[in-house]
């Protein structure tokens, strides 16, 4: 495993820890999109079907379990926890996330590395992950007071995607057969979605003012 990949996984992990920290200790999910969290839970459930079939490494298995458990825990908190759910900004989290699941599934059926159940689900999860951040970005635009933890959560999530692209470039040149067009193209699309956010995040950090996204 190269350094970019490890750093990418770690920033992904940090983003989840930051979000859980906010939800668990502050008992608030203000500014967090339940729609995005539900999509991530679905992404991991679809992608990690191989958990029971292929063993890659202990690292791989543990990380998969962590991402599965954390994504479902976050959804549980936002839907069921009696204090946390009251802080959910339902009025502004209006992105119609169900409507992006079906196109991703169709895309997974049409564009995959092999037409098998697991490969279709893998491709589906890649396409869905690429757009899963959209409800969260829309909610951020509509949130007046974006708290630091929410902004950091999205920042680390975006950093993870950027680092994965460096990881692919590195692997492309160091591993002779490493070609995954589906994840590369979807990954680049996903990273581009963060462009605007990064711009305003860095600007707010430089000027030492609270993050605000223009509508």
């Amino acid at each position: 495993m190269n350094l970019f990949r490890l750093a990418g996984d770690m920033t992904h992990l940090v983003s989840v820890v930051v979000l859980l920290l906010k939800i668990h200790t502050i008992k608030s999910c203000a500014g967090v999109s339940l729609k995005t969290q539900e999509l991530y839970a679905l992404v991991f459930a679809a992608r990690y079907l191989d958990l029971f079939v292929h063993f890659v490494s202990l690292y791989n298995t543990v990380m998969k379990l962590v991402f599965l458990a954390s994504s479902f825990t976050i959804v549980w908190y936002m839907r069921r926890h009696k204090i946390v759910r009251r802080t959910y900004d339902k009025e502004h989290d209006t992105f119609r996330h169900h409507f992006i699941v079906l196109p991703c599934l169709v895309l997974g059926l049409l564009l995959n590395e092999k037409f098998t159940f697991r490969e279709v689900m893998w491709a589906f999860s890649i396409y869905l992950e690429a757009v899963a951040i959209l409800p969260q970005l829309v909610l951020l635009q509509r949130t007046r007071n974006i708290d630091n933890l929410t902004a950091q959560y999205v920042f680390f999530l975006g950093a993870y995607r950027v680092l994965y692209i460096f990881n692919w470039i590195y692997r492309y040149f160091t591993e002779p057969h490493f070609v995954h067009w589906i994840s590369w193209i979807a990954g680049i699309v996903q990273t581009l979605l963060y462009g605007d956010f990064f711009y305003y995040y860095i600007l707010s950090w430089k000027n030492n003012v609270k993050l605000e996204l223009p509508a």
């Binding site: 990949r5 791989n60 590395e113 057969h177």
Partner: peptide, 10 residues
């Protein structure tokens, strides 16, 4: 076959 390898990324 390029797609035969086990997918090792998260």
């Amino acid at each position: 076959d390029l797609s035969q390898d086990v997918k090792d990324e998260l």
